[in-house]
Nucleic acid binder design. Structure first.
Length: 570
RNA sequence: CGGGGCGUAGCGCAGUCUGGUAGCGCACCACACUGGGGGUGUGGUGGUCGUAGGUUCAAAUCCUGCCGUCCCGACCA
């Protein structure tokens, strides 16, 4: 391809409404253009990248034995009513009517359609397991689209659905997909982690998210510094401290703490470490009117997801309001504590391990010091309530936890029978008995990968594409070719020969000054470039530079094709 | 849905307070110079100032409604 024939839509200035670096660079490099909020046109350069990602995903899915299908974006309401999601899904489901006023939606996902297909086509256990996938545009009417292509209303997704006669078969395919995803992200050249995820409202027994590590990621993930363990931070278990709880050493004492509300104020006021205090939060119980007190170490944060999963606690988690608390406990938010409290208490593992701690006295503006479990109040029910923090021991027993941010680019689920049950997808087993099929689903955000790759691979000059997804492998920059016959003929000759050698080449034959060409090719992130200029050419040399290299090097004209072949296809 | 910001040329912005002929930089076109890191000069193209209404002799500017868009939050996956 020649730049003179290519829509190279680069921009010098950063668009004002782009917040994250990938969004800025995608606009500046001319990969995408916004049509409306959350809706983007892919320009030729961007589409090349998208297609390369898609190709790798397709190849690896095919290799796993999955079969590609293509389902409609427009889906009839009846299917969604059958699964119950027409009501459940909410306004994110973009609904439309056709000319006969029949209800349809634009598919945010395709469980209903695929389940309908399989219940009609698959009748026998002999046809299972089967794994069907597509790479297709999804529509979600996001409340707030943001970060460009990262969270848009229309996006390209690979979604696969597997069907099984039993759980064992599902788990087999689930493991296969786990490996396939790892292969895909490895081939794409991205730094990623499979993390244990919350199964959320979908339920089911197993779920992993695949995250590309990047500072701008929307999710926090915790992983061990010396094993494979990684989990969404909501899911990471906080282990109980090891060893015995220290014996009480201090006397229980009451202190007046006027105006002290937060743990920070308490620690300053009494000159104690927040880690030797406890905080007490009050939430709604799972019966109508009850309350439950949750006790955590002062320096720890409550993990709402863990809490609401516990028996006895309302889900979703509901914090009690201060008036209710005051009536039930005798004091407001800043002065609560486990000693003598009138409502059921659940204590976090770490807080349960404290001795001589400081806590609220359940009397306004009063705290207790030197409090101890079993002596001053019974040790209540102990559970894992807190958010893990960096340095905590890894739940798998190996190493310590680090916390980084990640961008979710893949998600695999063991769905179970949620959809097959509702939509009556059954097959006959070997005994001629009807069995409801068990399902798995496996998604990859293809367009989001493009943004995630940029978040992870860029510098102040622009994008640095991993070789696997670059729009072109090599840029040829002939300098002053409109004036120099030697440069022009050498460039044309090399352009021919490199194409014949099977390389995907972009030749910048525009009548632009060198600085413009350098800047553009760096901005759009072509991994390799050669410069053809009178200076080096006089010595019979071509200049080569990798996008990440600091300096260029000279390669004799006669060796250049072979040299490039080695550089690009090691 | 709540709070906040912004809508003036393709992009980035000034002008709005204090009403009086629509402006700058980049980009684009032409020509000349220049030719190894977004170069220089000259001349040009391009805007019903988001939209509807109101006030006024006169509105980008003042008033009201609406729309769009971005950020924060809530919500959701």
């Amino acid at each position: 391809m020649r730049t003179s024939n290519f829509l190279l839509a680069t921009q010098k200035e950063t668009p004002a409404d782009a917040e994250v670096i990938s969004h800025q660079l995608m606009l500046r490099a001319g990969l995408i253009r916004k049509l409306a909020s959350g809706l983007y046109t892919w320009l030729p350069l961007g589409l090349r990248v998208l297609r390369r990602v898609e190709t790798i995903v397709r190849e690896e899915m095919d290799r796993s034995g999955a079969q590609e299908v293509s389902m409609p974006v427009v889906q009839p309401a009846e299917l969604w009513q059958e699964s119950g999601r027409w009501e459940q899904y909410g306004p994110e489901l973009l609904r439309i009517q056709d000319r006969h006023q029949r209800d349809f939606c634009l598919g945010p996902t395709h469980e209903e359609v695929i389940t309908d297909l399989v219940r009609n086509e698959v009748k026998s256990y002999k046809q299972l397991p089967i794994n069907l996938y597509q790479i297709q545009t999804k529509v979600r009417d996001e409340i707030r689209p943001r970060f460009g292509i990262m969270r848009s209303r229309e996006f390209l997704m690979k979604d696969a659905y597997s069907f099984h006669i039993d759980q064992a078969s599902l788990e087999e395919t689930y493991e296969l997909m786990h490996r396939t995803y790892s292969n895909i992200f490895t081939r794409l050249g991205l730094e990623f982690r499979p993390v244990i995820a919350d199964t959320g409202s979908i339920g089911g027994s197993g779920s992993h998210e695949f995250h590309v590590l990047a500072n701008s990621g929307e999710d926090a993930i915790a992983f061990s510094d010396s094993s494979d363990y990684a989990a969404n931070i909501e899911m990471a278990e906080a282990l109980a401290p090891s060893g015995e709880r220290p014996a009480p050493a201090a006397e229980l004492a009451e202190v007046a703490t006027p105006g002290v509300k937060s743990i920070e104020e308490l620690a300053n006021f009494l000159g104690v470490n927040p880690a030797s205090t406890v905080k007490t939060l009050v939430v709604a119980a799972d019966n109508d009117s009850g309350l439950v007190a949750l006790v955590l170490r002062g320096d720890h944060q409550l993990n709402a997801i863990k809490a609401e999963k516990l028996e006895g606690i309302a889900s979703p988690l509901q914090m009690a309001d201060e008036e209710t608390v005051r009536r039930a406990c005798g004091a407001g938010f800043g002065s609560l504590g486990p000693v003598g409290i009138a409502i059921p208490v659940i204590v976090d593992r770490a807080a349960a391990h404290l001795a001589d701690f400081t806590c609220g006295a359940n009397r306004e503006e009063t705290h207790l010091t030197g409090a101890n479990w079993d002596r001053d109040c019974p040790l209540p029910r102990v559970e894992d309530l807190r958010e893990v923090i960096e340095g905590d021991p890894s739940p798998d027993g190996t190493g310590r936890l680090q916390i980084k941010r990640g961008i979710e680019v893949g998600h695999i689920f063991q769905l179970g029978t949620k959809y097959s049950e509702a939509m009556e997808a059954r097959v006959l087993d070997e005994n001629g008995k009807n069995i409801t099929v068990t399902m798995g689903c496996y998604g990859i955000g293809v367009s989001r990968i493009v943004a995630a790759a940029i978040e992870q691979n860029h510098d102040d000059r622009g994008i640095i594409w991993p070789a696997s997804m670059a729009p072109f492998e090599l840029a040829i920059l002939p300098l002053n070719m409109q004036k120099s016959e030697a440069v022009a003929s050498c460039a044309e000759d090399l352009y021919q020969r490199l194409q014949e050698a099977g390389l995907d080449v972009l030749m910048d034959d525009r009548n632009e000054r060198p600085g413009v060409k350098f800047a553009d090719m760096e901005l759009i992130g072509i991994p390799h470039r050669i410069v053809i200029g009178d200076r080096a050419l006089a010595e019979g040399n071509i200049e080569y530079k990798g996008r990440r290299d600091d300096d260029s090097r000279l390669v004799p004209m006669g060796d250049i094709v072979e040299f490039l072949r080695e550089q690009l296809r090691p």
